[in-house]
Amino acid sequence: MSALICGSLAFDSIMVFHDHFKNHILPEKIHMLNVSFLVPEMRREFGGCAGNIAYNLKLLGSTPQIMATCGADFAPYAAHLDKLNISRQHIRHVEDSFTAQAFITTDLSDNQITAFHPGAMNFSHLNHVNQASDVTIGIISPDGRDGMLQHAREFQEAGTPFIFDPGQGMPMFDGNDLMAFVELADYVTVNDYEAELLQTRTGKTLDELAQLVKALIVTRGELGSHIYADGQVIDIPCARASEVLDPTGCGDAYRAGLLHGIANGMDWATTGRLASLLGAIKIAHRGGQNHAPSLNDIKQLFKAEFGYDFA
């Protein structure tokens, strides 16, 4: 299986403020806000949806291809991908730009203040799906707006089945745009909040949207997920995590499970359970790419959790 993953590559700088934001932000002065937070803890992680999805697919023994754009500061990420033996063939370097970056400050109540710089993501339209070969399935995850629209059309023209995964990119699109994505895609995956937004913007119910694709997948956090397929709603349980440390990248891990299951002809119950398990493995580790189970570990965990083997 070779999946083409169109989406973002990013550096995540995560800082911890050892207090509560509310103690330092005065409501009556919000119109002239000027605050500074001392953050003695900081870590920098490799992230971005495309990078995270590819990382998890590699754990499953697949051969992911990343189609993304990066900036002049990409060298550490490039070395990371080389170490993982993940191809950089379709990662375009954009001069005079930064790789996308998120700067996240978290307080002791897990409130977050995030600044996101898209950088080279804005040039994702310079990449074209037909530049990749031997692709059996694709996914469009959050990326530059023009690139997402273009890649959806190109997947459809190439006859390559793909998942539409709008994620945090959904606010960039109106109802007509979202309907165009759904009509071009073979599969759609959203979380429960995005599902509500998708219905509001398109004017369609989940049942109506599901009729336009082979499957509509809605993740629901600790409640598991629902897969609308073949005229039914398949309830997927949430796999148990050894501990809950960091949800960053859990959705991407789940999507890797979807890609692997679809490409390998698994039934929806098994595909959803594999996706759920990958999310549970990830949440027990900080960052999107720091969990490192072997494929055999994943298979053993799957059987222990669900009572049967996956192919």
Rank of each mutant, 00 (worst) to 15 (best):
H24Y: 14
L60S: 08
H24C: 12
V135N: 01
L84N: 07
D177P: 06
E157V: 12
G257Q: 02
V16F: 14
L209S: 07
L4F: 11
F11G: 09
D107R: 13
T271Y: 04
D246C: 11
H20M: 14
G48P: 00
P64Y: 03
N296P: 03
D73W: 05
A229D: 10
A304N: 06
D174N: 12
I139R: 00
V213L: 09
F155P: 07
A241T: 00
L60E: 10
V213T: 12
R286P: 03
K214M: 04
M170R: 03
I91F: 01
L60F: 05
L206Q: 08
N191P: 08
H128C: 01
H18Y: 15
L149I: 11
R153Y: 10
D12G: 02
R273M: 13
V182E: 04
I30E: 14
N130F: 13
F123Q: 15
G48Y: 03
S276A: 07
L9S: 03
I163P: 11
Q112W: 06
P64F: 09
M179D: 09
I14G: 13
D82E: 14
G167V: 02
F164N: 03
D165W: 09
G224C: 02
H125S: 06
G257E: 01
R43P: 00
F181K: 02
N296A: 15
D134V: 05
V16G: 11
N130S: 14
H90N: 13
